[in-house]
Amino acid sequence: MSTFYFIAFLSVFFSILVITAKNPVHSILYLILTFSTFTVHYILMNAQFLAVVNFIVYMGAILVLFLYTLMLINLNKESEPRKSNLVKIAGFVGGACFLITIVAALKAWGTSHPVVLNDPNLGLVKNLGKILFNEYLLPFEVSSILLLSAMVGAVLLATKDPKTA
């Protein structure tokens, strides 16, 4: 349990650094550290497959692309759009309202009971695969169609219209 609290502290700490870092590349690097603490969380919950997939997909691919994009964009102080104080105050008030709403909602909900898994080895590859392809086959396939449609949309945006080109 103490391991959990230590890792949870690190997750929160790095996430705060993500939004407070001045340099966008630094904040992506903190985001990578945040995701690496998530991997440890998954391992603590004995979800090895999810841990490794989080490691490969998020840390190894998606964040590399984030870093790639940010390195190419020129994010100097001069090119950054100036925000007036009014916008900042409005943002602060909006964010605070949102925070209060969420806290109140969680309070009304009451403290949740600790989740007890029927099978603690559910996260191992073999068990996870069997569950996904037997009990949850339809949602699993539907989510893959969702990903496919996102991919088709991205290709459509990237290709130039032959008439205008």
Binding site: F49, I56, V64
Partner: peptide, 15 residues
């Protein structure tokens, strides 16, 4: 028991 994926993860971090 996810040995191959571990290697794959390490490779993807190498960049």
């Amino acid at each position: 028991n996810v040995g191959i994926l571990y290697i794959f993860g390490v490779v993807s971090l190498g960049v």
